[in-house]
Amino acid sequence: MYDLKYHRATSVDDAVAKRAAASDGQFLAGGQTLLPTMKHRLAAPSDLIDLRGIGGLAGIEVSGRNVTIGAMTTHAAVAGSAELAKVCPALAALAGGIGDPAVRHQGTIGGSIANNDPAADYPAGLLALAATISTNKRKIAADDFFTGLFSTALEEGEIIVSVSFEAPAQCGYAKFPNPASRYAMTGVFVAKGGGGAVRVAVTGAGGDGVFRHDGLEKALAAEWSASAADGVAISSDGLMSDIHCDAAYRANLIKAMAKRAVSAA
């Protein structure tokens, strides 16, 4: 890891100010992706601004079907939240499948979505749940937030404060883990809103990162069943191909995981 200057932020404003003062500052949330990247010398921020000390950024609030999760809430906390499990068990299960127990004790929802790894789980969940990402400056709809591989709508000096969504009537997530990294080789989150609107988000497969699948959404809106998903033709155009599997296999996984997600919902 290259030399750096470490800062402990006491508030969101303090964090923003410290980053602004740095030549190439980065916020440090759980650090479960950033620190390994820095260890490999693939990232070299001049300054790290640790967000752990900021009060009020962690915690889960459930009010009726409205859920708000603080940005610094760990995956373990999301996975273990009894309140969340009552209204949206699929998101709790998703969090419980990220990384491993030790990683889940440090990794945070805010850090995960700010990084927007194309194989991360949360982006699929939040996109399918039509979540709103609240920052220190504004509210951003998930549809606008995830803009491509490792890129988001976040601007300079913008910090995620929380994510919120209305728990849908039904939702489910199924992930096929990469056997090496255990990230999603493909993960599909399906959500059916109270009005019958269906959103299907796919992670791990898209060449541009997380995306919504129109064909699956239409089919599942018409009939909410695994067999409806089974009837959808999944194109492999634009899907990732790497040493682990090709686009055709990922297309197959989209269908298989969609079916499982619906069954689990």
């Binding site: 650090g31 620190l35 030790a102």
Partner: peptide, 18 residues
């Protein structure tokens, strides 16, 4: 893996300062 405040964490993926 060590325990930090009673929870298992990867000490290779945490700054000492944190």
């Amino acid at each position: 893996v060590v325990h930090v405040d009673g929870r298992a964490m990867k000490s290779c993926t945490m700054l000492a300062a944190s």
